[in-house]
Amino acid sequence: MTLILAVCVAVILAVCIYLMLGRELKEVAMGVFLLSHAAHLSIIAMSRSPVLSGAEGHDLKSAPILGMGSQPVDALPQALILTSIVISFAVMGFLLTLIVLTGRRATTLNVDDLAKEQLPTP
């Protein structure tokens, strides 16, 4: 099961980087939208409940809520992810606004066109 997660992490990250290497800031923003998923899936893999390791026939671990089952999973990775989700939402919101404004002021979102502005003069 961690293998599935690892593949997901790899694919999402690869797509994000691929989009970041593209030409349009809009596409880059879309890549960023996915970026946090990769991080979160990577962290959730650290909670290592047995079913996720693929141990067949073992009792499923329960959610980290007391009284739900005999063996709750490790709650810390979940807490970390929650924090990270909120933060990435905040960054995302700001970034989108910035891109809107950039598009408006610079009339282009082409990374190469933007690079031509304000280059240090020799």
Binding site: L95, I99, L101, T102, A106, Q118
Partner: peptide, 14 residues
Amino acid sequence: AERRQLTQAYKYIL
């Protein structure tokens, strides 16, 4: 939000 700020800031953020 000057133009020169906006055209560069995305690098920093991304």
